[in-house]
Design a protein around this nucleic acid. Structure first.
Lengths: 113, 113
DNA sequence: AATAGCACTATCTTTTAGGATACCGGATTT
DNA sequence: AAATCCGGTATCCTAAAAGATAGTGCTATT
């Protein structure tokens, strides 16, 4: 019973890592926590991501109901990506990640820059 | 300035994902939250991981000062892996991940099982 | 009318993670 | 002394992730 619980936790962690893991997914979500963004805006924000990867990740996040793509007003060729409600529920988690990440960097990586 | 801050957060998230990301790292850490464990114990706990991968990940986690490998008493051929203090500082984060993961599963994956 | 920006798509290639499998030396059990 | 368990190594292989690069159709700007 105790053990079963453990097993589950291991699986939960793996599930979440699937969703926010990888080189970009977490970063995209973090960037969208700030505010909704357009494709190229996101691209600039993330630095070195390629359009191929960005669109792939965005579609994945859409499929998982974390991100929503909507046409801006009625202008064609203008879309924004924003967090869904479910996506927003990740914000505290991401915030904790950022905090721990800063601590980790200063501890391990010697806070260069 | 504001923008710089954003950039940093994106990097922080990526750093943390590096540390706890991938198919196994988060799971290993979660398993070690419970208590210190030996190699084969961990292996059993994680289910389908291969020894090659497990040792690789453990070494990575050691390098990043999250896990510590120690000889048990004075018996040769008996080692335990445990979280360092820094590793333990991840516990709340992992707990949040588990909680969100459960919510996500019931929402998206339809809580099968 | 031409140029440039937006939001992608397509193709090709490299990189990386991680699985499969076999093996190894030392310690322990029988 | 033989078999088994522990804590790994060593090799080989595959699939998936992601980079590089070029091109597309539409719109907005000058």
């Amino acid at each position: 019973m105790r053990n079963k619980q453990k097993q589950l936790q291991v699986r939960d962690v793996q599930d979440v890592i699937n969703v926010i893991g990888g080189r970009w997914r977490g970063a995209i979500l973090a960037s969208l926590c700030d505010k909704e963004k357009r494709f190229n805006e996101l691209k600039r924000d993330l630095g070195s991501i390629t359009p191929r990867t960005l669109i792939k990740e965005l579609k994945y996040l859409e499929m998982n109901k974390l991100v929503q793509r909507r046409e801006e007003n009625h202008q064609l060729n203008a879309y924004t990506y924003r967090l869904t409600e479910h996506g927003h529920s990740l914000e505290p988690l991401i915030a904790s990640i950022v905090v721990w990440g800063q601590k980790h960097r200063s501890l391990i990586l010697g806070q260069k820059e």
